[in-house]
Simulated assay, not measured.
Amino acid sequence: MADVIRERITDGTYPPRTRVPSVVQLATEFGIAQATAQKVHRGLRDEGLIYTEPGLGSFVSRQQD
């Protein structure tokens, strides 16, 4: 699942500063546990691909030049 989200960010499906699907939405889309989807979100944050605004959601980070 992380590879799919990473690809969506890279190919522009999720452009910079746009919201990415929530943990619940990802769990539903991929048919996985919410805990697993949370780990994917955390990994993408650790990679610097997304950031989270408390109360607002997670967003694609600006691409590095």
Rank of each mutant, 00 (worst) to 15 (best):
D46A: 05
G48P: 10
T28Q: 13
E47C: 02
L26C: 09
G12E: 05
R42A: 03
V23T: 10
R19Q: 03
R62Y: 10
I32R: 15
G12C: 04
L44C: 12
V23Y: 01
L49T: 10
T28S: 13
V23C: 07
Q38V: 00
I5S: 01
G55W: 01
I50F: 01
G31P: 12
G57E: 05
V23D: 02
T18S: 14
D46Y: 07
A27C: 09
D11I: 00
R17K: 14
V24H: 10
L56N: 06
V60Q: 09
R45A: 07
L26M: 15
Q38A: 06
T18W: 08
I50W: 07
T28N: 12
A37W: 12
V40C: 04
R17C: 13
H41M: 06
E7Q: 15
E47V: 00
L56I: 08
V60Y: 01
E7C: 06
T52V: 13
T18N: 06
T52D: 00
D11Y: 03
T18M: 11
E29H: 12
A35E: 11
L44P: 15
M1I: 07
E7H: 14
G55S: 02
A33V: 02
H41C: 04
R42F: 01
R62V: 07
A33E: 12
E53P: 00
Q34K: 14
F59P: 14
G43H: 08
E29N: 11
T52A: 03
P15Q: 05
R17W: 05
R62H: 10
R45G: 00
A2D: 08
G57P: 05
V60S: 06
R42P: 01
M1D: 11
R8Q: 15
L44E: 00
F30E: 10
Q64G: 02
P16H: 04
K39F: 01
R19T: 07
T13Y: 11
V24D: 12
A2Q: 14
G12M: 01
R62N: 14
V60A: 07
I50G: 01
E53T: 13
A33T: 06
T10A: 14
Q63N: 11
G12H: 06
S22L: 00
T28G: 03
T36M: 02
E29Y: 13
G43R: 13
H41P: 06
F59T: 00
I50A: 05
G43L: 05
T13V: 01
S22A: 11
I5P: 03
M1K: 12
K39L: 03
R42L: 09
T13M: 13
R45V: 09
Q34R: 13
L56P: 02
P21A: 10
V23E: 08
A37L: 06
D3L: 14
Q64R: 15
E53G: 00
S58H: 05
Y51C: 04
P21D: 06
Q34I: 00
A27F: 10
V40T: 04
I50K: 03
T10E: 15
E53M: 12
E53W: 04
